[in-house]
């Protein structure tokens, strides 16, 4: 597989993972670019011990975690919800909410659920994050519940607002 082919297939997927982690479009693009620069630099050294996908998502996940060093830049999830909602149209509101809810999770949970949403097998997620497959399963179950609950709470709040209006 050439670098061009890899980039074509994986860059949108890596971008979504990064968006799930930082919930900031330009920041996510930066991490995506950093990830593919690392891929380009190390492609010759890649030993095929794991699949290319696992390898690329591992680099992307580690690059996301490295953002901890950029402490000054705050995550978008820290913005008040109302500000973001003002700018969103109906179609993308749900999408924006999803990325906001994910970015409100703990750092490693953000990665795990983004990888799950990218439909990676749980064994591969375990290999990328470095925890047992059983642990991944438990975590995914809990995270799914958390996100659904956030959506339901949001819907309830919206209904409540409409009733009041």
């Amino acid at each position: 597989m050439t670098f061009e082919e890899i980039y074509q297939i994986y860059s949108p997927r890596v971008y979504r993972l990064c968006m799930g982690y930082v919930n900031d479009n330009s920041w996510a693009k930066d991490i995506t670019q950093e990830t593919f620069i690392t891929v380009w630099q190390n492609l010759g050294k890649f030993r095929q011990e794991s699949s290319v996908g696992t390898w690329i998502f591992r680099i992307a996940s580690n690059n996301c975690l490295r953002q901890i060093e950029r402490a000054k830049k705050s995550l978008k999830s820290e913005l008040p919800a109302e500000i973001e909602e003002k700018f969103s149209d109906d179609n993308s509101e749900q999408e924006k909410l999803l990325f906001r809810f994910i970015s409100e999770l703990e750092e490693t949970d953000r990665l795990i659920i983004s990888l799950e949403l990218e439909e990676l097998p749980q064994a591969q997620i375990a290999e990328i994050i470095g925890i047992s497959e059983g642990n991944v399963r438990v975590k995914i179950h809990r995270i799914k519940e958390k996100i659904l609950k956030k959506f339901q709470q949001h819907e309830q709040l919206q209904r409540h607002k409409t009733t009041l209006a």
Binding site: K29, E95, L117, E119, K144, E155
Partner: peptide, 19 residues
């Protein structure tokens, strides 16, 4: 939003155009 499949669909709807 009652099940996780809706969330999965929403995730894949995210447009990635300007990379």
């Amino acid at each position: 939003m009652n099940n996780f499949n809706d969330i999965k669909q929403l995730w894949h709807k995210q447009e990635v155009t300007d990379l």
